[in-house]
């Protein structure tokens, strides 16, 4: 298949193919370690004229894929602007083992600051001895929840509420420490921002 005009071998998903070709593409909800989630929409590319999420589109069957088309870049930037508007705290920056992923995504797409008004949560949970959770950096990519539910099969955290009320939570009125969380840290390892970050 042609990727940005260059012939490459199609392997796995479009995202796999793109990354294998050494091309940077944000993928804030796709972790090597986790199944496809498809929530963050930051890996949008133009495939045979359609805008698709690279993570969930099989590369086989795609003739031409562009990560750098004007439209794909513009829409990705729009998504990243909406994403950035979820992060209000200084915690939006570094601190987690994977927070470079979101920082690089922003750096490469130059979202216009303040394009959308902030709409972030403020809750913080410092109860676990090993890590803390900060809603003001959370982008609801669901990696943490997927790691907890589908990798470790613990299910200590979930996303409660629908639409714009959705938030990551260890249950109703329960802190991480009080929940069934076993502190395995897979959520921290999965977080692409610093919403979940190790202490100390």
């Amino acid at each position: 298949m042609k990727l940005n005009g260059v012939s490459v071998e199609a392997t796995g998903s479009l995202l796999d193919t793109v990354l294998a070709a050494g091309i940077a593409l944000p993928h804030l909800c796709k972790d090597d370690n986790l199944p496809v989630i498809g929530a963050c929409r930051t890996c949008l590319v133009e495939a045979d004229g359609r805008i698709v999420a690279a993570c969930s589109t099989p590369a086989a069957g795609v003739q031409e894929c562009a990560t750098d088309s004007e439209r794909a870049v513009r829409i990705r930037r729009g998504v990243l602007e909406l994403t950035a508007a979820m992060q209000s705290g200084p915690a939006g920056a570094a601190g987690g083992p994977r927070s470079a992923e979101s920082l690089e995504a922003y750096a490469s797409h130059a979202p216009r600051p303040g394009q959308y008004g902030l709409r972030s949560g403020t809750h913080a949970d410092l109860s676990n001895p090993f890590f803390s959770f900060h809603e003001d950096a959370c982008i609801l990519c669901a990696r943490c929840v997927t790691a907890c539910q589908e990798l470790q099969h613990i299910g200590a955290i979930g996303i409660a509420g629908r639409g714009h009320t959705a938030r990551v939570t260890p249950g109703a009125g329960v802190s991480f420490r009080e929940s069934i969380c076993t502190s395995c840290g897979s959520c921290v390892a999965a977080c692409p921002t610093s919403a979940l970050r190790p202490k100390g």
Binding site: D32, N33, S186, V188, A189
Partner: peptide, 18 residues
């Protein structure tokens, strides 16, 4: 964690992690 490790397949527990 180490996703390619065939015994743990990307998982760890609190003791290994922290």
């Amino acid at each position: 964690d180490d996703p390619v490790n065939l015994s743990s397949t990307g998982m760890l527990c609190v003791k290994g992690r922290f």
